[in-house]
Design a protein around this nucleic acid. Structure first.
Lengths: 205, 205, 205, 205
DNA sequence: TATGAATGAGTCTTCATTCAT
DNA sequence: CATGAATGAAGACTCATTCAT
C-alpha cells in the first residue's frame, strides 16, 4: 500500500514531528540535533539527509506548524455563512477553539517569535510572520467591510485597524492561556466578542 | 557626592544596559558574555563579579526592562482622573504611546517569551510573566468594574475577561508594529478603543 | 567486439579518471567519494564495487598516473640513438616536453608526495616513489656511464650522483612551472642542458 | 628574567612547534587540533586563543618553518666572499648542509606543497611559494651575473634559467634524500657542483 | 550488478566559567 | 576589584562505509 516515493516524505514528516516536540520542549538553542534524531528513532546523520542544517530544519518546522494552524482557519473562512456578525463570530471561535490542539506546541510559536527577533534567521522568519499576520488581517478586514456594506456594522469603522486589533487579541489570548493554567481563552473570547460586536453594530434606532 | 556604594550600582547598570542591547540584537543564545563585556567596556571576568551567570544576567535584564516599562504604567494609573471611560482610555493611550521608546528593545520581549517557553529558566520567567499580566489585568479590570459601579458601563460585563482581552490587544499591537514597518499602533489603538467603549458603555436610552 | 570482461575494466578506468580529476582539484582530503561518483556519473556505492576504500582508490590513481607518465619515458628511452649526449639530451627533452600534458593533473603529484610524507598510506607511496626515482636515475646513470665508456664524457664523474641531480632538476622544473604561470620549463631545460653537457664532456684538446 | 609580554609569544611558539611536529608526522588532514593541544600540553580551547582556525595555524607553521629555513640562506648569502664560483659554491653548500636539520620536519614541506596544490588555502600557499622560489632564484641569478661580469663565467648564459635549475636541484635532492635512507645529498651536490661549474666557467685557453 | 539511504565515529569550533595575578 | 588567559564540555556537521533492495 505504501509506494516507495512515499518513504522520503514520511521520513521528513517523522523528523519534523520529532523536531517540533524537541524545540517546543527545550527551545531551539536548547535542542541538539542528536536529541531530534534520538526522538525520531534514527541516526544523527540521517537528519542531514533531509535538512541541510539545524536552522533549515527549524524553519521547516515553522512552515509545517504554520500550515497545520492555517488549514483550520482557511477551511472555516471558506465555509462561513450567515450575517457578517455570525461569520466573524464563527471565524473567531474556530480559531480560539484550536487552543486545545495548539497548546501542546505553543512554545514553538514563542521560539519562532524569538527567531524572528534576533537570530541569524531573522529575515526569513520576520517575512513569514508579516505575511501570516497580513493574511489573517485581510480575512477579518474583509468580513468587517462586508458587514459595513450590508449595513450591519457602522460605517465609520476602519476595517484594517479593527482587524489588526482583533487578530492580535486572539494571539494574545493564546499567550495568556499559555502562561496561566486556569485561563480559558474560549470563555474570554466569548465575553470579548459580545462587547466587540456591540461596538461594531449599527445602533438600532 | 558619589558614595563608594554607588560605584557598584553604576557598574551593574552599565552591564545591564550593555547586555540588554546585545540580547536585543542577537538574542540570548547568540550573545556571548564576551560581547557584553566588550560593549560595556569592561573585562569578561568582571561581569561575573556582578552576576553569577549568563542566565542570571538575562533574568536581571528582564527585571530591569520590566521595571522600566511598568514605571510608566503605574505612574499613569495612579494619576488617572475623570470618568471611567476617560481613565481607561488614558491608560491605554499611555501604554501604546510607549511604543516609540519600547521599539528599540522590543526584541528583548520576544526573547523573554522564548525563555519563558522553553529554557532552563522557564519557571522563573513564566512566573514573572504570569505576575505581570495579572497586574495589568487587575488594573484594567478594576477600572472596568468602576465603570460598571458608576453606571457608565453595562452591568452584564465580565471585567476580568474584558481586561484580559484589552491587555492582550495592546501587546499584540506592539508585536504587529514590530513586524511591520508601516504599522502605527497608536492609530490602530484609537480605532479599536472607540469600538471597545461603544461596546462597553450602557446604551443610552 | 566488447567482451563482457571489458565492461568492468571500462568502469574502473572511468572511476579512476573521475577520481584523478577530483583529487587534483580538491586534494585527497577535500574530495568526497560522493564527488567522484558524481563526476563518474555513477552511484556512490558502485565505487566500492571496484575499489575497496578511498585509500585504495587513491593509490590506484597513483599507479594509473605513474603508468601514464612513465610510458612516454620508457618508450623514448628505448628508441634513443646517436651519441651519448644526443641520447641523454633527447631523453631529457622528451620528459620536459610532457609538461603540457602533465600540467593539468600536476596537483596530483603533490598530493602523492604528501601521501608519501604523512598519511596512513605512507609506506605504500614511499616505496613506490623510491622505486620510481630509482628507475629514472638508473636510466640516466646508464646513459652517462655509456658516455664515459665511449670517451664522450669525462671519466672522473659519479654517474649515480649526476643522475640524481639531473632527474631531480626535471622534477623541480615542473614544480616551478606549476607555481609560476610564465615559467617555461622547456626553455629553462635547454639552457641548463647546455651548461650540463659542457660540464660533462671531455674538454677537447 | 621573563617579561610578562613574553608569555604570549612563548605560548605561540610552543603551539607552533607542537603543530609542526604533528603535521609532519600525520599530515594536515590526519592531525586533530586535539592532538596538537595534547602535544603542547595545553587545553584544546587554548589553541584557538592563539590561532583563529586550524587552517590559520597551518599557515602560521608554514611561515614559521620558512623563516627557520631562510634565515640560514640569507645569513650565508650576506657573508659570502671570494670569486663568484666560490660564493655560489658556498651558498649551495650551506643550503644542502641544512639537510640534517631540515630532515626531521621535511614532511612538512610536502604537506605545504599539497596545500598549495589543492586545498582551500591554495592561494595563500601558492603565493608564498612563488615568492620563496623567486627570492632564491634572484640570489643565485645575481651571483651568476656577477660571475659573468667578472669574466669568470661564460657570457652566453641565461642567469635566470640556470638559477631556476640550480635552485630546483637543491630542492629535488632533499626530496630524494627523504625518500631514500642512504641518499647523501651533500655528496651528490658536490659531484653536481663540479660539473655545473665546469659548464659555467669560461674555457681556459 | 548497481544503488543510495542510513549511519555514527570523528572534527572543528564556540563559549560559559574559573582563577591566578 | 578587575582582569583575561585557560579550559573542556558540548554541539553542528561531514563523510567513508555498509547493506537491503
Amino acid at each position: 500500500l505504501t509506494t516507495p516515493g512515499n518513504h522520503k516524505a514520511r521520513r521528513r514528516e517523522q523528523i519534523l514531528t520529532a523536531a517540533a516536540h524537541c524545540f517546543a520542549a527545550k527551545g531551539f538553542a536548547g535542542t541538539a540535533v542528536a536529541d531530534i534524531a534520538l526522538k525520531a528513532g534514527i541516526g544523527k546523520g540521517t537528519v542531514y539527509e533531509y535538512f541541510s542544517s539545524k536552522n533549515d530544519l527549524f524553519f521547516a518546522v515553522f512552515e509545517w506548524y504554520s500550515r497545520r494552524i492555517e488549514a483550520a482557519a482557511v477551511i472555516s473562512a471558506d465555509t462561513l455563512s450567515g450575517s457578517a456578525r455570525q461569520r466573524l463570530q464563527c471565524f473567531g471561535r474556530v480559531i480560539i477553539r484550536q487552543w486545545s490542539e495548539i497548546r501542546e506546541l505553543f512554545s514553538l510559536v514563542m521560539e519562532f517569535w524569538a527567531a524572528a527577533a534576533a537570530s541569524q534567521m531573522q529575515q526569513r522568519f520576520k517575512r513569514a510572520f508579516r505575511q501570516a499576520y497580513n493574511d489573517y488581517r485581510k480575512i477579518v478586514a474583509s468580513l468587517i467591510r462586508e458587514g459595513i456594506e450590508r449595513g450591519e456594522f457602522r460605517s465609520d469603522l476602519d476595517p484594517q485597524a479593527i482587524a489588526a486589533a482583533v487578530v492580535g487579541t486572539w494571539d494574545a489570548l493564546f499567550m495568556q492561556a499559555w502562561f496561566e493554567e486556569g485561563f480559558d481563552p474560549v470563555q474570554v473570547e466569548r465575553s470579548f466578542a459580545e462587547v466587540l460586536f456591540r461596538g461594531l453594530e449599527r445602533s438600532k434606532s
